[in-house]
Amino acid sequence: MHAIEFRNVSFRYEEDQPYVLRNVSFQVETGEWLAIIGHNGSGKSTIAKLMNGLLFPSEGEIFINDIPLTEENIWEIRSQVGMVFQNPDNQFVGTTVRDDVAFGLENRGVPRAEMMERITSSLEQVRMHDYLLHEPYRLSGGQKQRVAIAGVLAISPRVIILDEATAMLDPLGRKEILDTVHRVQAEQQIGLITITHDLNEVMQAERVLVMNDGEVWMTTVPRELVKKQTELQQIGLDVPFVSQLAHALQKLGVPLTEEPIDHEELLDTLWTLHSRK
């Protein structure tokens, strides 16, 4: 089953304005991690807003769990798509961590007993249960984003979208968030979409969608993506440090057969070459 499918989706804000998305098609499977990258203004965030019905396509169709998204079923569908945004301070409504996670559940009329259960389990999943009665604004950036993720998990979505949710965090906060969502995604077999500029984050995803000027530039796996260093740099992106290094080694004639995904893979290959001599 496709958790999300875009079929020939185009979007513009007004009829006399240029398209910000043109003929975009892709799928995300249940349990899959897709990273979306692209230069600023390439259409990434528009895709995110279309996925949970904050915007509707001008042309084309969007399917959530194989059901077409319409203005009639948007409220039902929205509970299946959880979004976490960039700025942790802009998404809190509750005065305690518990109230904040409860907010989405109250909105959906979940009975109290079930609500308490879901709050406990979602906060446990992001390891923030010890902070139940803390005030959200006193938490660190990474902790705030974990609470935001708990709020999303509490409504049992089929897909979680992180729209640059790690951009404002320090390196440790970033790692906390990625570890958390990756674990939850694997445990619950939900779809995960991360919209990001962080190249090392992209390398951890299963597939990558590259956007350029409102169009899909390429859909591929990370190991294939990094082969396109020059082309990516032309569209304002780049490849990770380890890929740049591997390409520089190849230019010097060092026979690397496969693109390394991390430092260890590259060093393993170099060590093997060394030992064979």
Binding site: L245, A248, L249, V254, L270, L273, H274, K277
Partner: peptide
């Protein structure tokens, strides 16, 4: 830089006496 590091690594990987 990355290019200079690549040269160092190529020397390390290529030289059995290293």
């Amino acid at each position: 830089d990355v290019e200079r590091l690549a040269e160092q690594l190529a020397a390390l990987a290529g030289d059995p006496n290293e």
